[in-house]
Design a protein around this nucleic acid. Structure first.
Lengths: 156, 156
DNA sequence: TTATATCCGAGTAATTTAATAGGAATTAAA
DNA sequence: TTTAATTCCTATTAAATTACTCGGATATAA
């Protein structure tokens, strides 16, 4: 019942992009360096974000990525779902429209539990906007005076 | 972000035990047969439930398992946490007291997100008591007239 | 004494995750 | 027009986790 690095790294990447933007495209290599994640791996994650319409890419030299929408119109739920797939605790055709067949849904009692969990997770993440995290991130950085030196490998 | 078979099978096993009890110990082989889960694997799951004080075991012939407490005093949260470990979306020492060190917790912005998710999951599962599922299960079985024949392999 | 159970730990197969790697396509700037 | 910087895409691999299986020890009612 854990998020994978896709969700964790990917959210950090979007937050980095949103926090460090100066209205120009940011190269993935910059994000990768700041977040200490390999460029190759980040490419795969940002591809999901692009396909979900969360970031836009600008190809070629001086290219990079920009947010596709204002940060207050992007929910953390949008970001995490695009990276992790649905946030339901089980693959169940009644909760999400997955491909899993469930021939006994009328007899299934536990789906009552899975639905409650699923709804509560989605409500929680849809209630947080990227802009809130950006604000928090800038506040913290201002207080701490972050530089290259006092940053350390992040695990979660 | 999915529960493993530990949580899914284990919850079904407890629910089976609670639903089909007649105040005598139920052998694991019976639960295993009804739920179509291997006895060997179920053993590992019920061991967790026993250590968590959710079921009691009676050893020897005619032995088996019984609920350690009335079903209305056992929450689904208790059951799932004993099977899956903590239900937090990340291993973070600030959310749960795991062994993971986090040297930059004061700089971590995403923990705000993980905490909200974690709390919402735990609130959801702690708000459902086993007795509710038992009631629902009995109702459904009465309606459908469940027999060996119309049961089918459950996936979630 | 025997059959029926739980209990326990080791081993293994299958799946998923977390990357790495290499090259094609695109574009700004020299 | 060439070059360097960059995204884009797919295949492969290494590591970790999950989902079991297996064998035997221990306990106990009949």
């Amino acid at each position: 019942m854990k998020l994978s690095t896709k969700g964790r790294y990917g959210l950090r990447a979007v937050l980095d992009l949103a926090t460090n933007t100066d209205n120009e495209a940011i190269a993935l290599s910059q994000i990768a360096e700041r977040q200490e994640i390999s460029v190759n791996y980040l490419e795969q994650l940002i591809a999901k974000l692009r396909k979900a319409g969360i970031v836009n890419s600008i190809r070629g030299a001086q290219g990079g990525y920009v947010l596709a929408k204002p940060a207050d119109e992007i929910s953390i739920g949008d970001i995490l779902r695009s990276l992790e797939g649905d946030l339901s605790p089980v693959d169940c055709s009644e909760l999400n429209d997955s491909d899993t067949e469930c021939s006994h849904s009328d007899l299934c009692v536990t789906k009552y539990v899975w639905k409650r969990i699923s709804d509560s997770i989605n409500d929680a993440v849809d209630g947080i906007m990227l802009s809130e995290l950006v604000e928090e991130s800038r506040k913290i950085q201002a207080e701490a005076g972050i530089t290259q030196d006092n940053r350390s490998k992040q695990t979660c």
